[in-house]
Each structure stands twice: as C-alpha cells, then as structure tokens.
Design a protein around this nucleic acid. Structure first.
Lengths: 251, 251
DNA sequence: CACTTCAACTGGTATTGTCGACCTCGTGAC
DNA sequence: GTCACGAGGTCGACAATACCAGTTGAAGTG
C-alpha cells in the first residue's frame, strides 16, 4: 500500500502543495509502488497522512486525472489508470517531437528573413498587409535523412531579429516571453510536388502529410503560422484525445 | 456590463451550482452580452451577485477555461478569449464530424459480422486470439459522395449483436453503457490501393489519409479499434491542442 | 441457499475564512 | 513632463467543516 508521509511535502517551498502532492503520487506510480488497477488511498486517508486539506488533495488528484494517470469512480475509489503511451508533444516543435521518437533532429535552412505577409498570412495572423513578418523555411531531418519541409511565419514584433532563432523557433519565442498555449492544426494528405520531391528525396507524386498549424498566446493573439510537408513513408502523426473530465449531461 | 442575478441559479436543481453558473456565463458569451476581450466581473463580484461562494465561482470559471472560452491573468482579471473555431468532435464518430462540417453523412455496409481477432487486433484490444470480436466495415459518404472507408473492430462482450449498430457505432456502445473517454489516433498519408480507389471513386495512387484509432473506457480497457482511409482531396483533419492549464515550471 | 437491507465506506458539492502574489493606475516627487 | 512608488484591486492557494450521493459487502431475512 501507498504510504505518504508529511515529510515529503515541503511547507516552505514556493511550489504549491497540490503540485508537490501530485508529483509525489506521480513518482509512486512511475516507480511501481502502486500498480495499474490498484486503488489509491481514499482522499480522506491521503488528507490525514499528509496533513493536507481534502480540497487540496482533490486538486492534486485532478491534475493527475487530466494527465490520464488516474481514474475516479464515485462511491468506489480512485484507481491507477493503465499507462497509455506518451503523446507526442503537440504544441512542441520538431526537435522535441523527434526526441520523443528517439531520432536525432537536424535542419537545413532554405530561407530566413523578413517581409510583408501574403493576404492569407495576414488573415490568419490578424495583421495588416503593411506590417512585418519573419519567415523561416527549413528542411527538417531525422538521423540525417530529410523528413519534412517546414515554413513558419511569425509577426515581427515577437522576435528581435530572424537570427534569434537557432534550432528551435519555440525556444526563441519563449526566450522573449511569448509562450503559445493553444494551437489549431489541420492535417491533409497530398502528393509531393516536383520541388518537394527534390527537397525530400522522394519521387514526385509520393504521399506527403501536410500539416498547417496556427498557435495562439493566452490572450488569443496569433503568434505563429506554420505549414509543413512530411514524407508519408516515414512519418505518422499521433494524437491523444480525451473527453472532458466532467461531461455535462444536463444539456 | 454583465449582471448575474441569483434568480438564474436554481438552488433545488440536481445540477451542481458550478455547472449552472458556467452555463449562465457560457450563454452570456454566446449571446454577445460580454464580448471578446472584455473582462468578466471579478470572482468576488460574481460570488456576491449570485450569492455563491468564491470557490464555487472559481470552479465554474475553471471549466470555461478548459473549454477555451476564458483566459485568466493573475492580478488583473478574467477575460473572454477570442473565439477559435470549434474543434471537430474528436472522440465522436463520423456522423457528428460531418454534422459539424455541414455535410449529410451516409454509409454503405461492406461487412458486418463476428469472428476471431487477428494477432494485431488481439494485441491492440488486449484480447486472446480465441475470444470474439465484431467487425464493421462501411463506405462512408458525405452528401452522397464516397469520402472514407472505415473498418471497426469491437470486442464482442461490449455489444449484444452486430445488428445493434445502426448508423452510429458510438451510439450503440453508449446505449449499452460503454462510453469511451480516451482515444489514441495515428494519422498517416498514403496512396490509394486498387480496392480503395474503386470504393472511393478515385484513381489508383490518389492521396489518402489513413487514420487509426484506439478508444478506451475510463478504467483503461480498450473498446474499439478502427482503421479508416479518407480521400485526400476531400477531407482534412483538424485538431485543437492546448497546453496544460497550470504548466509545471518546477521540473 | 439466494435475496434483501443497511451501514460504513467511497468520491462530489458547497461554505466561510485567511493569507499571499501579482497587476494597474493614480499620486506625488523630481 | 517623466518616473518611481504604493494602495487597492485581482487572481492563487489552502484550511476546516458540512452534507449529499453512489458503491459495496456483510449481516439479517425468507
């Protein structure tokens, strides 16, 4: 059985109690202290053992519910959910996506500069056509093999200069304090054009996966518009979907 | 400004207060009472006006945060987030997906029956190869035009008979009390095989979007394994991704 | 022996009270 | 006029308590 002692929680830490508790439970699960299907101690027990109020315990459990680590059953208990493989970092960039897949990411620059947006870009980024944008186009490689062509557009005000972007666009944006929190992705199947075929080292008309992504800051302003073409024979896109935690049955 | 009166909330209703409140605010936003970018009344104000405790008000706001309708700024206020187009019902079936796109869904049966799982199916559904599964294969149409081929496999114990499935597999499962809460989807680009081309009325080697989906119940047991091939020229797959509500910066 | 009942669990909702961190904007000093 | 500063407002975190609502299994009943 899981034993949780107050000792594990640091009262003075700036990290909120519910996060510390969540992390403690997360660790227990990762270490196999409590296994898939096992019941967690009841909320009241946890509350007593860690000397944390039940409300706070519930908050910790809720974050783990969101992560899919636990499942609750009213009247019965809280259980460790079976591990489902980690989803690829969706809002993360190419680099960490490749990292998750155990591939070595690389890239070759095609274009890096500033300019005015096309009408389509102006529309999706909410800009006037006379405002400035930065463009980044790269061939992305995995273990040295070309895997995708990626063309990103960012409103110029979010970055000091095009050269601020090293390997990761997201890292550069975050360094300036701009962190996208939402994204909208559109995925299509298509055939490689002549140019794409050349850049990706495939035959023309090979299958490609086209991914279009728009990212937004917390206040809703668009920060990035990226269009990519992935080799269909080497890449698949994995998403995990979850139903809302508390389905609204009243409507 | 938004005025919320206690009158809107029904004390005696079986629906929890926080959901009633969330619904009330949701309605206000939909009706344009409060517009994009506007600040919501402060939590204390809402609490006073509706005579609901602040904790409960926060819960209501949190559900709207999850839905992407609101965004909070510590020390400043809670604001109405810009409307981002509705995501397609991800865990929903073909029918409601088409509904969202304003297309009339239809289908033509190819196969409907019972049998033993293939090794691959046994693996992904967590079954023994001697247990039974039900198979459903259909050509899915939108406004009468073929759009996708869909092949679903469900462990037999979840449905009384193959005939329980009318137009919607999900509806049939839910009628038996089985509601999938999580799904894992894998999306690939490919070229249509001879048979696919025939069923979809496209030329061989046309681009197709292959989607593989596994769904799970709350307790983690796999309930469905579906493989689909969508016409690349007529379908795109849209997903919305969100960063976790409270990013853990401590790790 | 099968069946029903019910008490003692479990999680679900809601209140009141307190303190802290953060943001904004007006006031006053320079 | 510009700038630093602080007061007051906002969200963030937590405690202690109360009661409601499903679940479960053991005791009692037929």
């Amino acid at each position: 059985m899981l034993r949780l002692e107050r000792t594990e929680i640091n009262e003075a830490s700036p990290t909120p109690l519910y996060r510390q508790l969540a992390e403690a439970i997360r660790t227990r699960i990762r270490l196999g202290d409590i296994k898939t299907g096992d019941a967690l101690p009841s909320e009241r027990e946890l509350s007593d053992a860690a000397r944390i109020s039940r409300v706070t315990v519930r908050r910790a459990i809720e974050t783990l519910l969101d992560e899919g680590l636990l499942s609750r059953k009213h009247g019965s208990g809280t259980y460790v959910a079976p591990r489902i493989e980690q989803q690829a970092g969706l809002l993360s960039g190419f680099s960490s996506d490749m990292g998750n897949r155990g591939l070595r990411p690389g890239s070759v620059w095609i274009e890096r500069g500033a300019g005015n947006p096309t009408p389509e870009e102006a529309m999706t980024l909410g800009l006037g056509i006379d405002e400035f944008v930065l463009r980044f186009a790269r061939v992305r490689t995995a273990d040295g093999e070309p895997l995708a062509i990626e063309r990103a557009v960012v409103p110029a005000r979010f970055l000091e200069s095009p050269d601020a972007v090293g390997t990761s666009l997201y890292a550069a944006l975050e360094a300036q304090g701009h962190r996208p929190v939402r994204g909208l992705q559109r995925i299509q199947a298509g055939l490689a054009t002549q140019e794409e075929a050349r850049l990706l080292s495939v035959v023309p008309h090979a299958a490609v996966l086209r991914i279009e992504r728009r990212s937004f800051l917390a206040d809703g302003s668009p920060i990035e518009f990226t269009r990519s073409a992935y080799r269909g024979d080497r890449y698949d896109f994995v998403t995990e979907v979850r139903e809302p935690r508390t389905p609204d049955t009243s409507r």
